[in-house]
């Protein structure tokens, strides 16, 4: 049972990191990024590469993954989206662009996994890091590291957004880009920042993911629904939505799988996606703006003085 709880928290932490980026880029660029899960898988392969070729432990290579992931996020914006936004493309076209980008990343990941195999003379198309994990007073490293990542991210974001001039400008541009522009703020910076952070957080999540489950190039297709469910249930229009949604979806998925495995035995992981899908559909039916879009949340926010 304790393993189930640990697994649930780790998975939720990773979902929070993944959903944060999705929500931020949605707020600043107005497009749901279908390549978000592929960001994570690329992160997994970056960590694997650093492990194999530089003998760097995946936890120690997190800063490198963060920066490379940020560059991946920026590339996504510059190569797939910005040229279209400049031409005033519709939202459907932007969505197709992120699907196309997702396919390109998928192709690159697949090709790269085989290339890496030919370099290391091992099978790198499927891998795990679980054997590399450490224990600290009986707590697994993945729990400690992923929780620290979420804590640092939230703290960093809070300080940045509420205590710096750049952060206030960011919040201003997210809420009302045209008014922000009229104030002399360069709204483009907001986008660049959100894409950098989105890629960086997703890749970090991706380098912790192999401590939790097997990674193959197709893994992105397996987790994309959970990420979207987290962002939508929490609310796509509020950064904190990703935090709330990430934990709701992560914990529900894990507990549901656990209960189901008692009755049906192993191999039921796939049904956890049904739970995510159902929660997402219920949110869309009742309140498409998610939990952070409700009146109740507004009261909580006022109470927290955020």
């Amino acid at each position: 049972m304790i393993d189930v709880v640990i697994g649930a928290i780790v998975w939720s932490n990773l979902l929070v990191l993944l959903a944060l980026g999705l929500t931020m880029t949605y707020i600043t660029t107005g497009v749901p990024n279908f390549a978000q899960a592929s960001f994570a898988i690329i992160g997994s392969y970056i960590a694997l590469t650093l492990l194999r070729l530089a003998e760097l432990h995946p936890y120690l290579s997190l800063p490198v993954t963060f920066i490379l992931g940020g560059i991946l996020g920026l590339l996504t914006y510059y190569l797939a989206l910005k040229p279209l936004i400049k031409r005033k493309a519709s939202i459907e076209m932007l969505m197709i662009a992120t699907l196309a980008w997702d396919l390109i990343l998928f192709g690159i990941t697949g090709a790269y996994s085989e290339l890496l195999s030919s370099i290391t003379k091992k099978t790198e198309t499927l891998f795990v890091f679980t054997y590399l994990d450490f224990e600290f007073y009986g707590l697994p490293g993945r729990l400690i590291v992923s929780s620290l990542l979420v804590l640092l991210t939230i703290l960093g974001l809070y300080l940045l957004l509420y205590k710096t001039k750049f952060g206030i400008a960011l919040r201003a541009s997210m809420e009302n880009p045209s008014l922000a522009e009229a104030m002399g703020i360069n709204v483009e910076n907001t986008r660049l920042f959100s894409w950098f952070l989105s890629g960086a957080l997703a890749c970090m999540a991706g380098s912790v993911l192999p401590f939790l489950q097997e990674i193959v190039p197709q893994t992105g297709y397996f987790i994309i629904v959970s990420i979207f469910a987290a962002s939508i249930v929490g609310g796509l229009y509020h950064i904190l939505g990703a935090l709330i949604g990430g934990y709701i979806i992560g914990i529900s998925e894990s507990l549901f799988t656990y209960v189901l495995s008692i009755f049906l035995g192993p191999g039921v992981l796939v049904y956890s996606k049904v739970i995510s899908l159902l929660m997402m559909i219920v949110t869309i039916l009742i309140h498409p703006k998610g939990i952070t879009g409700t009146e109740l949340w507004r009261k909580v926010e006022r109470w927290l003085n955020l």
Binding site: I168, R171, N176, G184
Partner: peptide, 26 residues
């Protein structure tokens, strides 16, 4: 030149102080 639209002329998620500060961004 300042242009104040009829609606959405302040940032509702920002405090009054932050709104004033952001107005002096430049």
């Amino acid at each position: 030149i300042s242009y104040l639209p009829q609606t959405n002329n302040v940032f509702t998620n920002l405090t009054v102080r932050e709104n004033l500060r952001i107005a002096g961004y430049i």
